[in-house]
Design a protein around this nucleic acid. Structure first.
Length: 462
RNA sequence: GCACGGGUGGCAGAGUAGCUAUGCAACGGACUGCAGAUCCGUGGACCCGGGUGCAAAUCCCGGCCCGUGCUCCA
């Protein structure tokens, strides 16, 4: 089954075709580092991490670019209030982002361009747009003029010029004072004294929000590239603005082969937002959930669907994750093959991933293998599919270290447990159930779970 | 208001025309002094109304409801 990818622009799943055989150029809109990363970021970059991993597992050479919008109004607000340079705020939050992504096994992109390091390219692109008559200078900045390319409107959202002209339900306001039309958008903002700014042909200023991605992708990939990803909310205006900028600048279309957008994160059925008080940063989530258990939860819904993170949903994911780790650990320490035919599971796993990266269906296959008998072949299967493709496994070294840690904790209490168990067995022999249960309660209180079986009792640390 | 996406068992969540989804929970059985774990098994769903088809959860039309977007947003 060939790999099919859903494209927001054409609203269909299509077989992936790339500009160059065997290679994929992929650009994903990165964060604006004005605050620590939240669960919405986790969902987005986890989704595209799986895209990245599956493309590579399928034999593609992937060139993955993700930007940092390291200059922006909110960053300036925060740096002002703290009395520090804007770069201090940006760097702090970029470090936080990379740290939490590493913890969740997100592979690094190949390049992380920053707006502040792309200024010459941005200015060059705006100059080209101005020369070609697509941009004009207003009194507070340079704007893209929508009416110079009306046919490009609504490619990702289906909205028409007239609809937005009508005024977005009366909620259009606060547009730049220099705009000719409220649908036009800023390419370059002239800055106020005291703000960070760069020299340009139009005066001291800084880039508008949309132009950076066009400049970076043009700079890195050229006039066209294969996949452009980002959150569902970025379709409009951000990604439609990119289409205007890139295609009007180069005259080549389409700039992007496949537009991919991930669905949003809800908390207990409500949109996650600071105002609702249900806003979780990733680090806050780590306090109650292991990073890879959180990864398990976030990948257990296909990337385009909204995901509702309820406590029950997260707990269920954590349980499955623990089972996966147990099964992997048992299989790793197994010297023999299970003898199970894993080819059906492999095929279904691949088919699921090839169907627009359906991680949900793929993980069902993982769950089936997890509940089968352990063996070295199972370990290899899990390592490849749950590990390399889905990124759900710690390294074999970490797993071995964890097993060793559990083993030593077990050894510490083993002598006492064994003697208590002996005592309990003799109580059970004489049908002194009260005494037997008393001993079991005592063991429970020191964290030992006793399980009676046909071969006598076994125990493990709860 | 307009656009896009969605409405599937107690819960989560796949599935785009015919064949058990799956997991958790529940229930029954085996095993057990009890509990737990394990194994076997069972029931239960396709928002509403029309249409097309031999056949519709799936395609078409209409309606209702929910989510998101509509110039800060992953």
């Amino acid at each position: 089954m060939p790999l099919r990818v859903y494209d927001t622009r054409t609203r269909e799943k299509r077989e992936l075709s790339t500009l160059e055989d065997g290679k994929v150029s992929m650009y994903v809109c990165g964060i604006t580092p004005y605050s620590p990363s939240h669960l919405g970021h986790a969902r987005c970059y986890l989704s595209f991490d799986v895209v990245h991993r599956w493309l590579e597992a399928s034999g593609y050479d992937v060139d993955y670019v993700q930007n940092f919008t390291d200059i922006d109004d909110k960053i300036l607000d925060i740096s002002d209030s703290e009395g520090v340079e804007f770069s201090v705020v940006a760097n702090r939050n970029i470090d936080d982002y990379l740290g939490v992504m590493d913890a969740m096994n997100v592979l690094r992109a190949d390049h992380y361009p920053r707006v502040t390091e792309t200024i010459p390219e941005i200015i060059g692109m705006i100059s080209d747009l101005e020369e070609k008559g697509h941009a004009y200078v207003g009194d507070d900045g340079v704007y893209f003029e929508i009416d110079t390319a009306p046919e490009k409107y609504g490619q990702l959202t289906g909205q028409t010029l007239e609809m937005v002209r009508a005024g977005a339900g009366g909620r259009v306001g606060g547009t730049g004072s220099g705009k000719r039309d409220h649908r036009d958008f800023a390419l370059w903002k002239l800055t106020k004294p005291g703000e960070p700014s760069w020299e340009s042909p139009w005066g001291e200023g800084r880039p508008g929000w949309h132009i950076e991605c066009s400049a970076m992708s043009l700079n890195h990939f050229g006039e066209q590239f294969d996949i452009h990803g980002g959150g569902h909310d970025l379709r409009f205006p951000h990604h439609e603005a990119e289409i205007f900028q890139s295609e009007c600048c180069t005259g080549t279309e389409p700039v992007v082969g496949f537009w991919m957008h991930n669905g949003f994160v809800n908390i207990d059925g409500e949109k996650m937002s600071k105002s609702l008080g249900n806003f979780w940063t990733i680090r806050e989530a780590f306090e109650s959930h292991a990073p890879l258990a959180l990864r398990y939860a976030l990948l257990s819904v296909p990337y385009r669907n909204p995901i509702d993170l309820t406590p029950e949903f997260l707990d269920e994911a954590a349980m499955h994750y623990d089972r996966l780790l147990d099964a992997y650990g048992n299989s790793l320490s197994s010297q023999e093959e299970s003898g199970i035919d894993l080819s059906g599971a492999s095929e279904r796993f691949s088919n699921a991933m090839n169907d627009d990266f359906n991680t949900r269906s793929a993980m069902i296959e993982v769950q089936a293998v997890v509940s089968s008998a352990p063996g070295s072949d199972v370990a290899a299967w899990l390592e490849k599919n749950a590990g390399e493709v889905l990124g759900l496994l710690p390294s074999p070294e970490e797993v071995a270290a964890n097993l060793a840690q559990v083993e030593s904790a077990r050894a510490e209490v083993a002598e006492r447990v064994e003697s208590l168990l002996d005592e309990r067995e003799s109580a059970r022999q004489s049908k002194d159930w009260a005494r037997a249960d008393e001993i079991r309660d005592e063991l429970t209180s020191i964290g030992v779970v006793v399980e009676d079986g046909p071969e006598g009792p076994t125990w493990h640390l709860g």
